[in-house]
Design a protein around this nucleic acid. Sequence first.
DNA 1: GTAATAGTGTCTTTCAGACAATATCGA
DNA 2: TCGATATTGTCTGAAAGACACTATTAC
Lengths: 232, 232
Amino acid sequence: MTISTYAQNVSHPPFAVTVDLVVLTIRESELCVLLVQRGEEPFSGQWALPGGFVLVDEDIEAAAYRELAEETGVSEGLHLEQLASYGAPDRDPRMRTVSVAWLALAPELAEPVAGTDAAHAEWVPVAETGLLTLAFDHERILADGLERARAKIEYSPLAAAFCPTEFTVGQLRKVYEAVWGHSLDPRNFHRKVTRTEGFLSETGGTSTIDGGRPAKLYRAGTRAMLNPPIRR
Amino acid sequence: MTISTYAQNVSHPPFAVTVDLVVLTIRESELCVLLVQRGEEPFSGQWALPGGFVLVDEDIEAAAYRELAEETGVSEGLHLEQLASYGAPDRDPRMRTVSVAWLALAPELAEPVAGTDAAHAEWVPVAETGLLTLAFDHERILADGLERARAKIEYSPLAAAFCPTEFTVGQLRKVYEAVWGHSLDPRNFHRKVTRTEGFLSETGGTSTIDGGRPAKLYRAGTRAMLNPPIRR
DNA sequence: GTAATAGTGTCTTTCAGACAATATCGA
DNA sequence: TCGATATTGTCTGAAAGACACTATTAC
């Protein structure tokens, strides 16, 4: 039996399964996404989300972590969560593919490393991605990832994933401002995050890297949910 | 080349892709989930979520709608949204499978129809599912589906998907009470849903099916988000 | 000193929680 | 009439938005 007849004869046809990553970070107060310039057909030369095939004995989450490490050079300290799966029959011209997309949030990293499939990888400000045509259905995946990130920092402590281990309230606020694309009142924001029990935990240290009065340093707290949320 | 060697020789190995459904409804003021008793190996005789293989040229969302219609006999008027994908290498003992799970919310329906794979399908109160052992990783999928439904009715008009086209505020409140498993103050709930612009739209009719003073009938409104949300 | 950022406090408005009171049906 | 549910209203406290003011650094 050949591969081509296989699909017609069994009730569970062969699919290729891939992972695609929406990796977000903040660079120079701008929300950026990691994009690769494809080095192979299809869509050779076009921008795409990093990703690749899931191996035959590999857990799909492990595949996402593997691709993430390949593209960023970093394998820990990142937040990774499943976004959604995309499986239109014609989404990949080569074969029937289902892609499981993941959302990763990273603190500022060194310049990205090109993966095996990619000619070139780059942090692109999200504001500029509107001008780009992405390969496959990656524009949709990116839009879904952005919306997830924007929604989730409202009610979860997830914004801290964009910060180094220790950070100031001002740095955390700049994350919200970059992700939502508008400014927040520093005083009301400070009140909200510091007076919400368990949201932040003081380290005792201070920082003056942003100038002005030294700011207390915090770590992400243990609270999983913010109720009521921070309003956008 | 045989099927077994195929997987070892190509970079994009064959996966089976399935859809699994968490179909929720309210019956006698209780949140219920549609379960099937499996008629085939593996897990023959055990309870499982309804679902099945995605066909070779079928969109994964279309597969979810198809399975939903097969199991419930209803193909429209239901809310269906993607939940998550589950792809541990050992989740199906037969073969490497990735399952795309979907959450469906339905108004009260007739008794379910057994699908092709299923010996028997039944609405099981969610409170009783804790005693059951579900096939595959379906306990996890069910838990994720329940949490999604519970979280989403807080800030979206989704609870109306459990109601008929026209419903009273009291019926809508009973949905929240069934999904969250505790009672809500009828007066405060009424104030919240009727005073939130665009959440409900009055039809002009009234209903006395629940006894007492006739209640105004409403349809779901056009507002997509509730801000601030209804607190659990 | 000035400029910059951190942090506190105050006033107002919005809204949730608790619950009294009234309205309108069926029996 | 009573019993049930619907609907309005009132009081209180929590918390957000707007914004004055003080604190502490670098220069």
